[in-house]
């Protein structure tokens, strides 16, 4: 059997997500900021400053110290519009559920109940895009702005056009043993997405491309990072210098079962 074992429940992960949402809002709110004009007492334009426009309000972190609310994104461009556009992506709610599944109700498009060793996840993601004003001349009361508006770094707006997507997915963990050279074994942890569904999004092509992005995010970041974090915490909690490797020969390692993510490691205490 293995030397070391670690497990974390989906309920705990859910509470960690919720707690982190409150304490580190910048991890859930991605914003390409707009700008606003700063005027002096005489109403003259003297400067610009960033304006972090979102669809849903974001509270300050209750933690002491400097904890930002937003992660900066770069504004995007569209053909024919020579000024870049602000936007926001806000994860309003996120959930993770391990087999047998008792937290997330999957939509009818996805199989239910979850198969063994499967997880499901859901996220409510809010997108906000800037709308181009009909008349940029609306900005003309500000002296000298009209002829320079296209030189602004980003379109100045005070609100965004928002819409919300509810995303559901399910899948399982995959492990591919590799050799990274010098005979050092390495377990590449991946994710096999069984299916993904974005509720009420049309047309099909848009849904497909959004699903493509989301799958890529899940595969390369979210779950592998969670598993590596669990592996790291198991080892770290030994309080020692160890080298670890996933225990071989087990039917599922890591395993997703009984509402837990489980991992078995062989370690060498140095």
């Amino acid at each position: 059997m293995s030397d070391v074992y670690g497990a974390i429940s989906d309920d705990a992960i859910q509470r960690i997500i919720n707690d982190t949402h409150v304490k580190a809002p910048f991890l859930f709110n991605y914003v390409a900021p707009s700008i606003r004009f700063v005027q002096d007492d005489a109403g003259r334009l003297v400067d610009t400053e960033e304006l972090w426009v979102t669809c849903s309000p974001v509270e300050d972190s209750p933690l002491d110290g400097e904890v930002p609310r937003f992660t900066r994104m770069q504004p995007f461009s569209l053909p024919g519009i020579p000024v870049k556009l602000p936007y926001c992506i806000q994860i309003i709610d996120a959930a993770l559920d391990f087999h047998p599944g008792n937290i997330i109700a999957l939509p009818p498009e996805l199989p239910s109940p979850l198969s063994e060793q499967n997880f499901s996840m859901s996220a409510m993601v809010q997108f906000g895009m800037a709308c181009i004003p009909d008349k940029l001349s609306a900005l003309q009361p500000i002296p000298n702005l009209a002829k320079h508006v296209w030189r602004l770094p980003v379109l100045p707006v005070t609100e965004l056009v928002c819409f919300t997507l509810n995303v559901f997915a399910f899948g399982r963990v995959t492990v591919t043993p590799e050799n990274i050279g010098a005979g050092i074994p390495f377990d590449r942890i991946g994710l096999a997405v069984g299916g993904i569904e974005i509720v009420d999004i049309e047309p099909r092509g848009l849904e497909n491309v959004v699903e493509c992005y989301l799958i890529a995010m899940l595969k390369s970041y979210v779950l592998p990072k969670l598993i590596l974090s669990l592996e790291d915490q198991v080892v770290k909690s030994l309080g020692l210098t160890v080298t670890s490797k996933l225990t071989a020969g087990l039917p599922d390692n890591p395993a997703i079962e009984e509402n837990e993510l489980r991992i078995w490691l062989d370690v060498k205490v140095i």
Partner: peptide, 8 residues
């Protein structure tokens, strides 16, 4: 069930 379980 506990949130976290480690064993050695």
């Amino acid at each position: 069930m506990s949130d976290v379980t480690f064993s050695v």
